[in-house]
Design a protein around this nucleic acid. Structure first.
Length: 288
DNA sequence: CGATCCACCTGTCGGC
DNA sequence: TGCCGACAGGTGGATC
């Protein structure tokens, strides 16, 4: 989502903000629209699943999509009249909660629209000078992107933990940014049971193990592939241009209960179990 | 501190 | 066809 928004938002000026309701998951900040209007966007960043829109006066707009949130971009013609926007989608307009009207450097208008049927998403303000101290970000663990997550890091994080691997990987205080789908997929690729105690792939001193290294490699690979594919779109969850991400076509286990395990030479069947209230999909035959 | 459950809200799908 | 319950990408707060 960040990659989709950055080309349109960066260096654009926010001309007007239409806030169509008082709250999403949380109330909007006081004077939400007024504090954004007139400002230029200096940077569009991300931490874990939080979108960070930096503004010229140091304010940061923190956005989160929750379960069902999405942004879409509508490119304008010569002005902001309704006719100037060609991709109006009346289907979801009932849940269009915020509209950002932008003036870009090339002079062409655009708008960025936040849609969220369940309203589990939210938008907050933070101080750019102390962005990592914001309550939503201060407790977050390591990023699963890039090359920093390796067997040693995982072993250190999981050492001594009796909590199931599934729960440990979802714990944003340890690794920040993995969701239910990618945890299921990474565990399947690594051949590790979601029920195994997290500490059993680690050593007491946090030394890399065969299993922690294999899991770290597969976590990184799943995330990298999903980003390259434009994310995982379920139902109406879309990219900024309105198209669906297509990583969901690559799922090996997620939402595949009852199907044969896709691993070569494995004759197991994908099972669905519930762990800490969330669905886990895995192959009991090859994930140990 | 850690583990577990629940709340938040709307839409969709499967079963009857 | 319609109704009803189960379930859905996540976070954060309450309660042990």
């Amino acid at each position: 989502m960040r990659r989709g928004l950055a080309p349109v938002l960066e260096n654009a000026q926010i001309i007007r903000v239409e806030q169509r309701r008082e709250n999403l998951r949380f109330p909007f900040p006081d004077r939400f629209a007024e504090r954004l209007e007139g400002q230029r966007v200096t940077d569009v960043a991300r931490r874990a699943k939080f979108l960070l829109v930096h503004l010229e006066d140091g304010l940061v707009l923190i956005g989160h999509l929750g379960m069902s949130g999405s942004f879409r971009i509508e490119e304008g013609g010569d002005d902001f009249s309704p006719d100037a926007f060609t991709h109006e989608r009346s289907k979801s307009a009932a849940h269009d909660h915020v509209v950002f009207y932008l003036s870009r450097q090339d002079g062409r208008p655009a708008r960025v629209i936040y849609n969220d049927p369940r309203r589990f998403g939210f938008m907050l303000f933070a101080d750019g000078a102390a962005i990592n101290e914001h309550p939503s970000l201060s407790g977050l663990g390591v990023e699963p992107t890039g090359n920093s997550l390796d067997g040693e890091v995982l072993s250190t994080l999981f050492a001594g933990k009796k909590t199931p691997l599934k729960a440990a990987l979802l714990d944003q205080r340890l690794i920040a940014g993995l969701g239910n789908i990618y945890v299921c997929e990474a565990l399947w690729r690594a051949g590790l049971s979601p029920k195994r105690a997290a500490g059993t792939i680690a050593t007491a001193k946090g030394k890399a193990t065969v299993r922690s290294t294999r899991l770290a490699e597969n976590v990184r690979a799943v995330i990298a592939e999903a980003i390259a594919a434009g994310g995982s779109s379920l139902r109406d969850h879309v990219q900024t241009d309105g198209s669906l991400g297509y990583f969901q076509h690559s799922f090996s286990v997620y939402d595949r209960e009852g199907e044969p395990c896709p691993r070569k030479e494995c004759r197991g069947t994908i099972m669905r179990i519930v762990q800490s209230g969330r669905s886990t999909y895995y192959c009991p035959s090859c994930q140990r």
